[in-house]
Design a protein around this nucleic acid. Structure first.
Lengths: 168, 168
DNA sequence: TATTGTTATACTCTATAACTATA
DNA sequence: TATAGTTATAGAGTATAACAATA
C-alpha cells in the first residue's frame, strides 16, 4: 500500500533489498503500525520480491518485465495492430510505439503492412524474436518458481486460486 | 510481472481499469500466454487492484499510498531522525525530505531539534496530524477490506499466511 | 471527419552528486 | 574528517496534445 519503488533499473535492486530488510520481521527497529495488518501491504511486498527476482533473472540486459510482456503478447497474438496491442497491455499509444521500437531495433519483431489499410500494420515476432522469447520465458518461469519456492504444491494452488478470486 | 502503471495520479485510475479489463477473464480478445500461468503476474494484478481501491479512497486529495505510509510510520515511531525514517521506508534521504516537507506544510508533522545535535531533528506528528491520520487509517482499512471482500474469513487468513511465507 | 501511429512536451517519481551546517 | 539534511540535476517511465498520413 505504500513505499514507492525506484524507477532506475540500476538502483532498483539495492533499493528493493533495503525495503525488504526494513520491513521484514528480523528488523525490530521500526513499527510500521497499521501497514503490517493490511493484506494490500503484504501483496505489495510480495510483488516487490517477485519483481526483484525477475530483474535479477534479466540481469544487466535492458529487458524489463514490461518489455518481456510486450514480446510475449505479440508472440501469442501474431499480427495484432498496434492500437489493439496498446489495449491488451493497457498502455498509451506512444508507450506502445516505444516498446515495439525497442524490439524492432533488436530484430525481434517486425511491423508488416496490412493489405487494405496503409495507415496501420500488424506486429509479428521474427524467428530471432521467438528464439529470444524462448530463453526469456524460461528465465521468467524460473523467477516465478523462485518466488513461490517456500510454498508446498497445494499451498501454491490455493494461493493462485485466492488471488484469482480477487482480481478476476 | 509486466504491464507498468502510470506515474500520473490523475490518469492512473482509468489506466488501471483498462488493464484490469484487458486481462480479466471476460475479455477473450487477447492471449496473454505465459503471463496467465505466473503467480507473479497474478500478484501484480492484485496489487494494481488494491492500489486502485486505495486511490479511490484518497479521492482527489494529493495523498498517495506512499505519503500515507510516511505519516503512519512517523506516528508509530515518534521522534525518529530523518535518516532512520529513510531506512524504515527504504527511501533516499532526498525523497524522505520531500515526503516530510509535504506533511509539514500541511501541519501534520513537525521537525523538532534534538538537544545535543543541531544537525538533525526528530520527526513528530502534530495533534492535527494524528486527527488526519485517524481518518486516513479508516480509509485505508476500508480499501483493504474491499480488496479482499470476495474471500471468506478462513480464506483471507490463509492468503495472509501464504503471502507472509513468501515475503518474510 | 475519423483513425492510426509518431513526435513533442510535460509531469511524477526516484536517485546520485554537490552543497551547507554542524560535530 | 565525518555526518545530517537540503538543493540541484539527471534519468526512467508515463501521459496528453499536436501532428502527418491515410481512410
Amino acid at each position: 500500500m505504500s513505499l514507492r519503488m525506484s524507477n532506475n533499473p540500476k538502483s532498483g535492486n539495492a533499493q528493493s533489498h533495503r525495503l525488504h530488510r526494513a520491513v521484514s520481521s528480523d528488523e525490530p527497529d521500526f513499527d510500521h503500525g497499521l501497514l503490517t495488518e493490511l493484506t494490500g501491504f503484504s501483496i505489495k511486498l510480495t510483488w516487490l520480491h517477485g519483481r526483484e527476482l525477475l530483474r535479477q533473472g534479466f540481469e544487466d540486459t535492458d529487458i524489463t518485465p514490461h518489455r518481456f510482456s510486450m514480446l510475449e503478447v505479440i508472440s501469442q497474438n501474431p499480427g495484432l495492430k498496434q492500437a489493439r496491442l496498446a489495449a491488451a497491455l493497457a498502455l498509451s499509444h506512444p508507450a506502445t510505439s516505444l516498446a515495439i521500437n525497442f524490439w524492432e531495433e533488436r530484430d525481434a519483431v517486425e511491423r508488416l503492412t496490412i493489405p487494405g489499410d496503409r495507415r496501420s500494420f500488424g506486429i509479428f515476432t521474427t524467428r530471432d524474436g521467438e528464439k529470444r522469447l524462448k530463453r526469456l520465458r524460461s528465465i521468467v518461469r524460473e523467477a516465478d518458481i523462485a518466488l513461490t519456492a517456500e510454498l508446498t504444491g497445494p499451498e501454491l494452488a490455493e494461493l493462485r486460486r485466492l488471488l484469482k478470486k480477487i482480481h478476476s
